[in-house]
Structure formats: structure tokens, C-alpha cells
Simulated scan of single mutants.
Amino acid sequence: MRILNIQYIILGITLMLVSACSCNRRPDAKKPLVIKGLYSFGPEIKSFQECGREKEFWVTDSSAQLELKYSQMNFEKPYLPVYVEVEGVKKPSNKDGLGAEFDSTLVVYKVIKITKEIPADSCR
């Protein structure tokens, strides 16, 4: 009888662990991609335009490095574009709040490169 109770306890713990692990995996979760383009930052705008595309994205800086590195460039005026290579994901923007006027949001997880020198190719 005691062995049976222990088996039920072990089975219960195993099921809880398996279900807890699977909750963190969303089938719709996107893997971060390296994305290249122009980033502009100022008091009311955090925007990104991918190289070779016209669509503009609102930017959410989960890395806490993009805005910091932009600010360290000491521009005299806000909103001047810089070339960036970031690791992140694109997702639909929220319907209200900051960035609501953009269709999509770029969530930045890692800053790979940021420079004032904009490539002459498709990023102009």
C-alpha cells in the first residue's frame, strides 16, 4: 500500500514538471533574427526601417543597449538615423499606447552593430 502511494506521488510530481516545462514553449514564438536597417530615436519616436524595405517599425529595446548607445553618439538633434544590426523579432504593434501608429514593432534583444556611417547600398 505504501509503495502504491509513493508511485502516485512520483507520477504526480512528474506530470507537474512536464506540464510546467511545456507552458514556456509557445508554438507561435518566433526565433530572433539578425535585422539590418536605420534606427531613429527621439523624445516621441523610436523607429526602424529595414534595409531594402519601406515599412517602418516601432522599436522596443529589450536589450537596454540600443537607446543607450544611440544617446552616447552625442547628436545635436534628435531623430538622426544610424545604421544598426540587431537581433530581434517583428510582431504586430499594440492597438493603443506608444507605437500604436505603427503596424509592427521590432523587439530588439541584442545590439550587434551601431554606427553613424550608413551603407551606400539599400539603406539610403
Score class of each variant (00 low, 15 high):
51 C>K: 02
98 L>C: 13
13 I>W: 09
111 V>C: 15
85 E>Q: 10
118 I>Q: 07
11 L>F: 13
33 L>N: 09
40 S>A: 03
9 I>Y: 12
94 N>D: 14
75 F>T: 00
100 A>H: 06
55 K>H: 10
12 G>K: 05
59 V>H: 06
23 C>D: 13
51 C>E: 01
74 N>W: 12
55 K>M: 11
83 Y>Q: 00
38 L>M: 09
54 E>Q: 12
16 M>A: 15
106 L>P: 02
73 M>E: 10
88 G>L: 05
15 L>E: 12
110 K>H: 14
59 V>F: 06
111 V>A: 15
50 E>I: 02
15 L>M: 15
15 L>N: 09
45 I>F: 15
75 F>N: 00
79 Y>M: 04
24 N>Q: 14
72 Q>H: 07
103 D>W: 06
75 F>V: 00
16 M>L: 14
46 K>H: 11
37 G>P: 05
15 L>V: 12
35 I>Q: 07
82 V>A: 07
84 V>A: 01
82 V>E: 12
85 E>A: 04
8 Y>M: 14
64 A>F: 14
61 D>P: 02
49 Q>S: 11
32 P>K: 03
44 E>K: 06
8 Y>T: 05
93 S>P: 08
78 P>K: 01
102 F>V: 03
86 V>Y: 09
28 D>P: 10
118 I>C: 10
30 K>T: 06
120 A>K: 08
7 Q>W: 14
67 E>C: 01
92 P>K: 01
66 L>R: 04
88 G>C: 04
22 S>C: 11
26 R>V: 04
106 L>S: 01
94 N>Q: 12
6 I>W: 15
